[in-house]
């Protein structure tokens, strides 16, 4: 089979997708980045390969996510694209008339507004983790409930407990307090979902019209309690795509396909990159008082990429993408 590879390396999860030429998901991998993006990509590729037939041919590869440049260098991507565009493209692919994309990942969240298939506005949270997957993860661990069952508890709630959602530290102390005075766990968990949704809507969606069809994607969309809280807050049905947790990777694969339209040859290095040993090292530039930390990625002594300087004097990057826009 021939297909297109999409890789989304985020702070928390690394997702890979292989799309067929008819844009169907042939294989997908969702795994933790664990602070080691290169290993995550290598292991992810290996895992993806086991799901694919022997004769698979990658006709194009795209990367996205916060480690998009790094993973682009590692695999030899044809296009490297920001995650906002990748998510919008993927959502539009699943629900062509989508007008609002709600995306909550491990460490960031975004809202993307589309009209007539064109992105007209977007927002991405800045420094606050209160509305993201990491916080839910942390709370599920604290309560001793597996994250997969978190949503089920929320659905059983009949009267959500009020939880302060403005800040994850305050939310946690508020939850402890509500537990200690005897609130039911189900109500606290649903209260937390509602607080996260409130925080998301207040922080990101300020003043913008969240019109249906609404698509909810990202790892947190697995949480049925969050879906319920969004539907209650917005008064609209929410669509959760089948492959909600790898939508960024799907977007990257779709972009890769589009970028190959002119009959270009892919620069994808092959699944063998899983077996290569990438060497990363860093040093502090002493050129001026900025003391930039320069990161170098090399393979067998050959420098693939080097970045991190403010002034640009150390920057070396393989042209992984001819597409500038």
């Amino acid at each position: 089979m021939r297909g297109y590879l999409g890789i989304d390396v985020g702070s928390v999860s690394t997702n890979l997708v292989m799309l067929t030429e008819d844009d169907e998901v042939a294989a997908s991998v969702y795994r933790r980045t664990r602070g080691q993006p290169i290993v995550a990509v290598q292991d992810g590729l290996q895992e993806l390969a086991t799901q694919l037939p022997e004769d698979v041919e990658v006709a194009g590869a795209g990367t996205t996510g916060s480690a998009r440049s790094l993973s682009g260098v590692i695999v030899g991507a044809d296009i490297v694209k920001n995650e906002i565009t990748a998510h919008a493209i993927a959502a539009k692919h699943v629900v062509p008339d989508v007008r609002t994309v709600l995306e909550i990942g491990g460490q960031d969240s975004k809202v993307i507004l589309l009209r007539d298939g064109v992105v007209i506005d977007f927002a991405m949270n800045t420094v606050c983790a209160a509305g993201t997957g990491s916080f839910l993860d942390h709370q599920s661990a604290r309560l001793g409930i597996p994250i997969e069952e978190f949503g089920g508890y929320a659905l059983k709630s009949e009267a959500a407990t009020q939880i302060a959602g403005r800040c994850s530290v305050f939310a946690e102390s508020d939850m402890v307090h509500k537990q200690q005075i005897g609130h039911r766990l189900e109500d606290i968990i649903y209260g937390l979902c509602k607080a996260l949704v409130r925080n998301y809507l207040n922080n990101l969606a300020k003043g913008s019209e969240l019109a249906a069809p609404l698509v909810f994607q990202g790892g947190v969309a697995a949480n049925a309690g969050m879906k319920r809280a969004f539907e209650e807050a917005l008064g609209e049905a929410i669509v959760i795509p089948e492959h909600f947790n790898v939508m960024g990777a799907i977007g990257a694969a779709l972009l890769a396909k589009a970028s190959m339209a002119g009959g270009r040859r892919t620069s994808f290095k092959g699944f063998c990159v899983s077996d290569l040993v990438y060497d990363t090292s860093n040093f502090t530039c002493k050129g001026c008082a900025n003391t930039c930390e320069i990161v170098k990625i090399s393979i067998e002594g050959e420098v693939l990429a080097r970045w991190g300087s403010r002034c640009g004097k150390w920057e070396v990057e393989e042209r992984v993408s001819a597409a500038k826009a």
């Binding site: 694209k81 995650e83 906002i84 007539d116 064109v118 992105v119 977007f122 826009a325």
Partner: peptide, 16 residues
């Protein structure tokens, strides 16, 4: 990241 997405948005509008 936001600037890249913003340029994508502007190009899409231009094309539309």
């Amino acid at each position: 990241t936001r600037l890249e997405a913003f340029l994508d948005l502007l190009w899409s509008r231009r094309r539309a």
